[in-house]
Design a protein around this nucleic acid. Structure first.
Lengths: 204, 204
DNA sequence: GCTTACTTTGACAACACTGTCCAAGATAAG
DNA sequence: CTTATCTTGGACAGTGTTGTCAAAGTAAGC
């Protein structure tokens, strides 16, 4: 998915072309992450190339956007899967999921506020799917095992968890909380949503 | 604030001018509520007037936007104040605040996701202030009285509450939950965030 | 060092939007 | 009925965007 192996017969792809392409992609991740409505001009400037060079590698704004989403999604999936959501108790796994996702939100603010949905509802929902579907599975497992509060629906817990994550990211971005404060508040809050009523607090 | 009493000396302001102005404002609330990036053309069409007529009453897009925000804010403040946030137990007041705000979110989707912040961070923060400041006062009162969980900061409870409200609104908008389901999930979730650890569930 | 792929610069068309002006035509106020 | 006010359609300047093209410069590959 990431490798573009266009079968050219002639010479190899020149190295600076590669450099430009990746520079543009990385700049796009950075810039569009903060402001999805940023112009191609801005992205080009951030990448240190001319605007036309961007078009040399990505034929349209939409294409660049897709590449950005793809890159982020790949990374996100890999990171989450590496955290091993399906092992251990659901509670434990949830905490791991939270820490991992919190780190990802830090790295990719695009997953946050700027409402990815604003830019492309279709593609954004699909891009979120690999993240949410894993959490959804985890929630189901926890509820089935009696570890998680069964009063709140899976749908809602999913939405609420994402919303709290977004909120935490925002508070940090707005400078109202430190990353550590927000992270701990997020854990505590999610725990309160998920735990069964009889469960006492466990974490320190 | 709402009355524009321009001291004309000659004839009175014509009635159709008034009608147009309010039609435009109402249409703007509706249209910009859903999509803040909507063009003046769209708003005019929704109001059933020509684009130039919009400019006859609101000299610029920004002016119209301010009027929209002002109108919504006025209504929101009045509605919340009417709910009497400062009387009764903090818990009780919180539930009243929630119900009221939930209704408002239903009425003004602009307060929701479309990230008002996207359109004008400055003005949006000020427009949210009358809402958040009242909740903030309530949270403080509850924590001081020992009714609310003191482990989570006022700042965070504020952000988390708003976030959950937004999430609930979205779930309804996306058709994944009914308004009743989302409302009850919202109450339950907020309750879980605010209550002290020893408190047992009270609501039905 | 020569060839070729890539980049850059500048210019340009197409489009959408905001904001303005004017000249009729419609209509409410007196 | 008269008149000031309002609405409307057409036109237009200004701006900012995406996307394309061609010519000239630059650097990688052999």
């Amino acid at each position: 998915m990431s490798e573009k192996s266009d079968g050219r017969r002639g010479r190899r792809r020149r190295s600076d072309a590669d450099r430009s392409a990746t520079a543009v992609l990385e700049a796009a991740v950075r810039v569009l992450g903060r402001r999805p409505e940023a112009s191609m001009e801005e992205i080009a400037a951030a990448a240190g190339v001319a605007r036309q060079t961007v078009y040399a590698h990505y034929p349209s704004r939409q294409a660049l956007l897709s590449a950005v989403i793809g890159k982020i999604t790949d990374d996100v999936i890999a990171t989450i899967d590496a955290a091993g959501i399906d092992t251990g108790s659901a509670y434990e796994a949830l905490m791991r999921w939270l820490d991992t996702s919190w780190g990802l939100l830090d790295r990719y603010p695009l997953l946050l506020h700027p409402s990815v949905a604003t830019i492309d509802p279709q593609e954004s929902h699909e891009s979120h799917l690999p993240i949410t579907s894993r959490l959804e599975r985890l929630i189901r497992r926890g509820q089935d095992a009696g570890e998680f509060n069964p009063d709140l629906s899976v749908t809602w817990l999913l939405a609420a968890t994402m919303a709290l994550g977004h909120a935490a990211g925002n508070e940090v971005a707005a400078g109202r909380m430190t990353s550590a404060q927000a992270g701990s508040a997020l854990r505590e809050s999610v725990l309160r949503l998920y735990r069964t009523d009889d469960r006492q607090r466990v974490d320190e």
